[in-house]
Amino acid sequence: MNMIRMIVTIILAGILTNNYVLSKFLGICPFLGVSKKLDTAMGMSAAVIFVMVLSTAVTYPIQRFVLEALGLEYLQTIVFILIIAALVQLVEIVLKKYIPALHASLGVYLPLITTNCAVLGCAILVTEDFGSAAYGFGEGYLYALSCAFGSGLGFLVAMAIFAGVRKRMEFCDIPETLKGLPITLVAASLVAMSFLGFAGVVHM
């Protein structure tokens, strides 16, 4: 089925060729900050996937039915960021009340995600890629959600790989000047280089 193939393609593209962290440079701050240990990296990625899908689910219809219908595309930035900020806050409150265990593990990362380029970037990009120009609402909505999910997964994969790399680097003999962030960035460049190899694998 064409639609299922498209969805799988989108998800794979989000992980391999259009990886948000390693190709698009979105979400670098948490990528560098939280990737020291695997469990914190996984927690952060789970939170990012959750927020990305949720915010796309809310902002895509608003873009279609409110902003574009009234010709107010220029309000996109303000409206999106307001919605995302409010949404994340709401999620935190709900989690704290109803699933305290999840809040204890994920809750720390939620405020970090509010001002994260990845979430806002995803919300804006899907309105461009799967917007009203090319797709009807139902189709476009589905593709937008899968794109958000795929990008989140890509974030998770990148974080997992990088956490492993950083763990290995802990015991290496690093020159004084490069200790800390510089060598981390060089390692990130090598991981990004490896992902370049996926270019052309997925045709969208």
Binding site: S23, L178, L185, S189, L190
Partner: peptide, 19 residues
């Protein structure tokens, strides 16, 4: 010009700044 180069140059610049 590609993504890896960005990380690389950034890392070396920060190293230079630290030094």
């Amino acid at each position: 010009s590609l993504a890896p180069g960005g990380f690389f140059v950034f890392g070396l610049l920060i190293a230079a700044a630290n030094k």
